[in-house]
């Protein structure tokens, strides 16, 4: 699907049949939607592209709910020198997962509503407007599933789900991978565990195995064997 087809598709396809972007003018949002559809290029089949686009051009959470999700994200993993929840695009990810895995919809929506209601009851403020201290008072009783009291059981399950989504969304983002220190997903030549780490763990390579190990200098020589299966080049 090329870009032009994609725009045509959005205009005539999914948006017409799906839930319209809530509370916004189509013309205004067109560019934003197209941008989001073209952001994800990861080897999809035509059918998969169609499905992703179908989800991306719908909006499940209201603006108020998105603001709550964003604030909860910041609360669960506060910004640091590497970045923050928004740079990690965690709210967008949670919005997407709610559509992609509909079992999340009810617990997330109801959980957000109940949390907001608690804020209104306790502080006469919406959750989003509550002070950090007040937020903490709302969240502490639901943040530790092993010690939660009966009355907060459902809120605690909601918070656990939210924490799972925030943490997984963060650490699978560009920002979060850097924060974690993940070093892979780049071409390299594996030549074993670095020596200092072997020493630290009091490990060593079995001397009986070393003859079988790859000599990384020779990996571009075309392999040849004798009749007995011994590698001779």
């Amino acid at each position: 699907m090329n870009r032009r087809d994609s725009i045509k598709y959005i205009a005539t396809g999914t948006l017409a049949s799906g839930v319209l972007l809530t509370g916004c003018d189509w013309a205004e949002k067109e560019e934003a939607v197209v941008k989001s559809l073209w952001k994800y290029k990861y080897g999809r089949t035509p059918k998969e592209i169609e499905y992703d686009n179908h989800l991306l051009s719908q909006q499940f959470f209201s603006q108020e709910e998105m603001a709550m999700i964003t604030q909860l994200g910041h609360f669960i993993l506060p910004a640091n020198e590497v970045g923050n929840i928004e740079k990690a695009e965690v709210p967008d990810f949670i919005e997407f997962m709610a559509k992609d895995f509909p079992d999340f919809q009810e617990p997330l929506k109801e959980g957000l509503t109940a949390l907001n209601q608690r804020a209104l009851t306790e502080f006469n403020l919406s959750f989003v407007k509550a002070e950090k201290k007040q937020k903490q008072q709302l969240i502490d009783p639901i943040a530790y599933p092993d010690t939660v009291t009966e009355e907060f059981l459902q809120q605690s399950e909601f918070f656990t789900l939210m924490r799972n989504l925030v943490v997984t969304g963060y650490f699978t983002s560009e920002v979060g991978l850097k924060d974690l220190g993940y070093q892979g997903n780049q071409p390299n030549v594996w030549d074993g565990v670095p020596n200092d780490i072997l020493d630290e763990h009091q490990m060593e390579y079995d001397p009986k195995w070393t003859a079988h190990f790859l000599d990384i200098e020779k990996r571009n020589d075309v392999a040849q064997w004798d009749d007995q299966g011994n590698l001779i080049s």
């Binding site: 565990v193 072997l198 390579y205 079988h212 190990f213 790859l214």
Partner: peptide, 14 residues
């Protein structure tokens, strides 16, 4: 008729 093997990872040594 084998090619050389990669060295084990740390958890594999465990």
């Amino acid at each position: 008729f084998f090619l050389p093997v990669p060295k084990p990872r740390l958890h594999e040594l465990y």
